[in-house]
Computed example of a mutant assay.
Amino acid sequence: MPAKGSVPESRGGNRPYRRPRTTFLIAVGAAAALLTAACGSPGAAGEGGDGGGGDGGTSTLKVTTLSLCNEISVLWAQQKGIFEKNGLTVELVKAGGGAAGLAAVQGGSANLAFTNPFSTMLAMKSGIDLRWVATAYGTPKEGEDPSNAVLVKEDSPIKAGKDLEGKTVAVNELGGINQIIVQQFVTDAGGDPEKVKFVALPFGELASAVASGKVDASQAPEQYSNTPGVRSLGDPYMKVGKDKWLVFAGYVGTAKFVDENTESMKKFLASLKEANTAIKEPANQDEKYRIEAAHCGQDAKKLAEDPENPYFADVPMDAMKQMAQILVDQGQTDKLPDVEKLVPEYSRS
């Protein structure tokens, strides 16, 4: 998982997760009902206006949040008046994970969900028509600073992903985005991910479990590679993505809502782009980390020392298509997710 990245919902099992359509829809419906009861009905985009975020009034968007540091783009745009300048009011609605966010937009208690591509594509497989409006952040590509690591003991004979065959690997959750990427990391190195045993551990235990010999390896944020007694095999996201950024998290709405509120969606995307330009300015770094720290409950000085993921709002289609193919290759879906349908033209890079 990226140093400050998103936390997808927990799932069980050691192999690629296969969720039956009915189970997924029941889970989504239940979560949506809970969120609707807690939050009430969202203010629709263009409410009091033209229904499309035009000149009829300020558009209100309810956007789910996981209270993560890497949500800085939407936080900056909200707190610095960028959304307001572009005719939007953005309200953040807390959700317990990516699936809960998707449930919220399906149930109508939020307009956009903060989630990851794999969860989104699997939801589409279950029959939920979704649109990926904007990216929140991605993962580094080769030649950039890593934000993740596959950790092994300093004296371990494990040298590459294929050597993880027959070994126990810890991830923060079973069946989530990090396990999927590690499985691909093993495959790309010539190994068989079916022969890897995955276990779930809290983030704070991922490195120490390797150092103590409790597990053979773990996937963890890059800063954990500084733990005494461990070393990194490299960033699995960088290895899988090679010369391109992969998409880690972004903002997703139902096809109906997004299509009916195209202008508001374009304004949301433009606001994130403007925010990303600002948060990359050296003069804004201290304030950026203060805003992050207040949102995610961490120390601003520590955040400034941690590796960061690349922030971009457009959607790189080649990366999304690669991630869709990974789901097929791993047997999580027998039909290639329709990325062309998922990502509107105006959202593409």
Results as ranks from 00 to 15, higher is better:
residue 3 A to D: 14
residue 4 K to Q: 15
residue 5 G to A: 00
residue 7 V to S: 13
residue 9 E to K: 08
residue 9 E to N: 10
residue 10 S to G: 12
residue 12 G to A: 07
residue 17 Y to N: 10
residue 25 L to G: 01
residue 27 A to T: 08
residue 28 V to N: 00
residue 31 A to C: 03
residue 35 L to Y: 11
residue 43 G to T: 05
residue 43 G to I: 02
residue 44 A to R: 13
residue 44 A to D: 02
residue 46 G to A: 07
residue 51 G to P: 07
residue 56 G to Y: 13
residue 64 T to V: 08
residue 64 T to H: 05
residue 65 T to Y: 11
residue 66 L to E: 13
residue 67 S to I: 07
residue 68 L to V: 09
residue 71 E to Y: 13
residue 73 S to P: 12
residue 74 V to G: 08
residue 83 F to V: 02
residue 86 N to M: 12
residue 87 G to S: 05
residue 93 V to W: 05
residue 94 K to Q: 09
residue 94 K to Y: 03
residue 94 K to R: 15
residue 98 G to N: 05
residue 98 G to S: 11
residue 99 A to Q: 15
residue 102 L to T: 01
residue 103 A to Q: 04
residue 110 A to N: 11
residue 111 N to R: 10
residue 112 L to M: 12
residue 115 T to Q: 08
residue 121 M to W: 07
residue 123 A to Y: 02
residue 125 K to Q: 09
residue 128 I to E: 09
residue 131 R to I: 00
residue 132 W to A: 02
residue 133 V to E: 03
residue 133 V to R: 14
residue 138 G to C: 10
residue 139 T to C: 10
residue 142 E to S: 15
residue 145 D to S: 15
residue 150 V to E: 10
residue 151 L to K: 01
residue 153 K to D: 06
residue 154 E to Y: 06
residue 156 S to M: 07
residue 159 K to I: 03
residue 172 N to F: 13
residue 178 N to C: 00
residue 178 N to G: 00
residue 184 Q to Y: 08
residue 186 V to A: 05
residue 187 T to Y: 09
residue 189 A to K: 09
residue 189 A to E: 11
residue 192 D to A: 03
residue 194 E to V: 00
residue 195 K to S: 00
residue 198 F to V: 02
residue 200 A to W: 04
residue 205 E to T: 04
residue 208 S to L: 04
residue 209 A to Q: 07
residue 209 A to G: 01
residue 210 V to Q: 02
residue 211 A to Q: 06
residue 213 G to L: 09
residue 214 K to E: 15
residue 217 A to S: 02
residue 218 S to L: 04
residue 218 S to F: 01
residue 221 P to A: 14
residue 225 S to Y: 04
residue 229 G to D: 01
residue 230 V to A: 05
residue 230 V to N: 06
residue 231 R to I: 02
residue 235 D to F: 02
residue 238 M to W: 04
residue 239 K to Q: 13
residue 241 G to T: 03
residue 243 D to L: 13
residue 243 D to A: 15
residue 244 K to T: 15
residue 251 Y to L: 03
residue 253 G to C: 06
residue 256 K to E: 14
residue 256 K to D: 14
residue 264 S to L: 02
residue 266 K to G: 01
residue 268 F to N: 04
residue 270 A to W: 09
residue 271 S to E: 06
residue 273 K to G: 07
residue 275 A to K: 05
residue 278 A to S: 13
residue 278 A to R: 12
residue 288 K to P: 14
residue 289 Y to M: 11
residue 290 R to E: 15
residue 290 R to S: 14
residue 292 E to Q: 10
residue 293 A to E: 13
residue 295 H to E: 11
residue 295 H to F: 12
residue 298 Q to K: 12
residue 298 Q to V: 15
residue 303 L to W: 09
residue 304 A to M: 14
residue 305 E to M: 12
residue 310 P to K: 09
residue 311 Y to E: 09
residue 312 F to L: 10
residue 314 D to S: 12
residue 317 M to D: 07
residue 318 D to H: 10
residue 318 D to R: 10
residue 319 A to C: 12
residue 319 A to W: 00
residue 320 M to N: 14
residue 321 K to F: 12
residue 323 M to C: 10
residue 323 M to G: 08
residue 324 A to S: 11
residue 326 I to V: 15
residue 327 L to I: 02
residue 333 T to V: 07
residue 337 P to Y: 14
residue 337 P to W: 07
residue 338 D to N: 14
residue 339 V to G: 02
residue 345 E to R: 09
residue 345 E to N: 11
residue 348 R to E: 01
residue 349 S to N: 08
